[in-house]
Computed example of a mutant assay.
Amino acid sequence: MNQSLGPPAAHGTGSFGTETLAVKGCEGRTPATVPRSALHDPAEPWSPTNCYVDVWIGLLAALGLNPVPMLSAALSADFLGDQWEFVKPRTEDLEVLYGIKVGEYDTWRPLGEHLQLTMSRGDALIVEVDAYYLPDTEGVSYRTEHTKTSIVPLRLDPLAGELVYLHNDGAHTLAGEDLHETLGPRMRCGRVPYPYVELVRLHTLNRRSPEDLWHATLAVARDHLRRASAPGPDGHGPADGLVAAIREHLPRLAERGMGHFHLYSFATTRQAGLTAALAAHLCRYLADGAAAWPDGVSVERLARAADSFDGAAAAAKTLQFQLARVASGRTARIDKAAEALAAGYRAAIHDARAALDLEE
């Protein structure tokens, strides 16, 4: 047994049982052998995205599924008045596209027991944990800052004292004290003593053919575009609201400094930028499908929408750098990047709606 776990009385070694367990399809996985989605390419401007989208990208890739279709939620993401929506795939979309059922899970037993029970059935859990004990966040929060994030345990080997888990843009190993503080009995004394947990049921998983998956994604994308906030009388949409709010917030950003900037930019420019980048991937996927299986969908308009979303994502990154200058007490002109973000987003949504025959 791994001696780093310490005596059972101190660390609760038995809290994870003795049997090696894994999510169905991930039985032999190690961090080095878990498939990596192109969405997590280091060249992607906003990868990692957000912790929830990232674990879904990672889980679907680990299961041999294409995660791009679930990104339709990016088309309906909205500005919430003081921040951009934290984009998440809808549970209904995941069931339609992949047959995967997701719902809140009541952890009335010790979490280690729930982990054993769900993994023994081949199902997965999405668990809120304290990033303070996640070694993949070294240099950011590992052993330096307590903050909540989401992980998916993939494979548990209690005798080796190791857990393979998904977080951010990859798969990693959790062991020893870190494992027990994150998912064992000692988590009750930590930052996330009673985590929000979702159960991912995989027994109904549906591996659609590429054409069938594309048609299903098309329907889901149309639904999200119908749900998206309609442009105002001036043609302005959510990104225009975000830009206006950022301009209004500039004096406070200059007063409160870099600590405030990191929190503010995460909720605004980062969320808007990654949403646009994900929407660009979805539009290109839809364009490729429209070329392969003509269905009255405009390949050209979808390609234009993807380019405009990419432009908005790049503008959000430039705007974020400029906001950092403001927060550090320097002068920065934000108008060009701010307008590029808003205009790119407006054009992208317009072309996506036109391509899917939703324009009035």
Rank of each mutant, 00 (worst) to 15 (best):
R333N: 11
Q322S: 08
D240K: 01
V55C: 06
D212V: 11
G344S: 09
T20L: 11
P294N: 11
S209I: 03
L274Y: 15
G103I: 07
A77T: 03
T331K: 13
H114K: 05
S328M: 06
S328H: 06
G64W: 03
D335G: 10
H11P: 00
G14S: 12
G184A: 06
A337L: 09
V102K: 01
L59Y: 03
T137N: 11
F86E: 02
V68A: 01
R304P: 00
K101T: 15
D351Q: 12
T331P: 00
L341A: 10
G237N: 04
Q322L: 15
I100Q: 00
A245I: 03
G344H: 05
K148H: 07
I126V: 15
R330L: 12
A332Y: 03
K317L: 14
A171R: 02
R252Q: 13
P48I: 05
R109F: 11
D136M: 13
V87T: 12
G232V: 08
W56N: 01
P238F: 07
V53N: 02
H11E: 06
D335Y: 11
G112D: 01
Q83R: 15
L156M: 14
E27S: 13
D136I: 08
S37W: 02
G241T: 05
I349D: 00
G176C: 10
V192E: 05
E128N: 10
R325P: 00
V164C: 12
N168Y: 12
G176D: 09
P67E: 04
V34C: 10
L59R: 00
E128H: 05
G296M: 06
E19N: 07
S120H: 07
H249Y: 14
H114L: 07
T107C: 14
L205A: 14
E85Q: 13
G184R: 01
V197T: 15
E128D: 13
T268S: 09
A73G: 10
E128A: 14
P251S: 11
A324Y: 12
A305D: 01
L218G: 00
V164P: 03
P195H: 11
P7R: 13
G273Y: 11
H236G: 05
Y133D: 08
L117E: 08
D212S: 15
G112L: 04
H236W: 07
E181D: 06
C51I: 08
V220I: 14
M119V: 04
D157A: 13
V96L: 14
V127I: 15
D136A: 14
T13C: 07
L97K: 02
E360F: 09
L213E: 04
E104Q: 09
M119S: 09
A228H: 02
D178G: 10
P135T: 13
L159H: 04
A316K: 01
L65R: 01
G103F: 08
R256G: 00
H350W: 12
Y285V: 02
K88G: 00
G232E: 04
E198N: 06
F266L: 14
R188V: 15
D212P: 01
H11N: 13
A280C: 04
P238Q: 08
P238E: 03
G232N: 14
G161Y: 06
R36E: 06
R207N: 08
R256P: 00
E248H: 14
R227C: 05
H203W: 13
A276R: 12
T118W: 03
E145C: 05
G259D: 10
L286A: 07
A160G: 15
F266K: 09
W108A: 13
D54W: 03
P158R: 03
T18P: 00
